[in-house]
Amino acid sequence: MEPILDIKDLTKTFRNRGKSDLTVVDHVSFQLYPGEILGVVGESGSGKSTIAKLITRLIDATEGSIFMNGRDITHAKGAQLKDIYQQLQMVFQNPVGSFDPRRTLGDGIGESLRNHGVPKEKCRERVIRLLEQCGLSEEFAGRYPHEVSGGQCQRAAIARALAIEPKILICDEATSALDVTVQKQIVELLLSLQKANGLSYLFICHNLALVQMLCSRVLVLYDGKIVESGTPDEVILSPKSEYTKCLVDAVL
């Protein structure tokens, strides 16, 4: 099967003038296949979020390349990026912060639709349908981010990411800012949406239990390098690298 996302030797180095360079992501290569949930685990500072930002082209890669459906998107700009974002979306760690504080949730969800030339009336209908799909009632379209809870806001953020009907969804610690029960609801929502729409997820997370429950494959990241990969059971039950052992021990 052809990978939908193919990452080759991706490297990000932050250059500090006067100080030594800081390599946050170091020659990382992996593939994401259609319909797959790929987990990425690792401690804070291991480069998980940087990988998400690199793939979504919010920051430029220092080295390496990113292929989406066989097309090189490492240096995409302007209109090309707009094309890419039709297939690639992201859910952010901080749900409330990911919405413009001066605009309603409905406005934020419909933004990608309007940018792709969907007429206003249709946009409204679609926003309401998306909200329902994510378990929120119609009235949330008119609310501001500070007027809803974190869990509700994250549901709206998922609705926003799904608005343009992408193929790939990157969840950057999408559940870590929420409490456990809400976390469970969001995970169930993500799973049901995956079944309904045939999405691929890149699920960035530091919760091993969640990864075991959700993912078909998992990558362990340490200091910007992939130290281990395999099915969650392999990685968690019989870790090979030292770091993974530490990680598993820390949970149990």
């Binding site: 952010f92 990911s98 933004e111 940018n115 343009i164």
Partner: peptide, 13 residues
């Protein structure tokens, strides 16, 4: 900030 990233991901110029 995260919301500007989100807006850029929505395809805004």
């Amino acid at each position: 900030g995260p919301f500007i990233s989100a807006v850029r991901l929505a395809g805004s110029s």
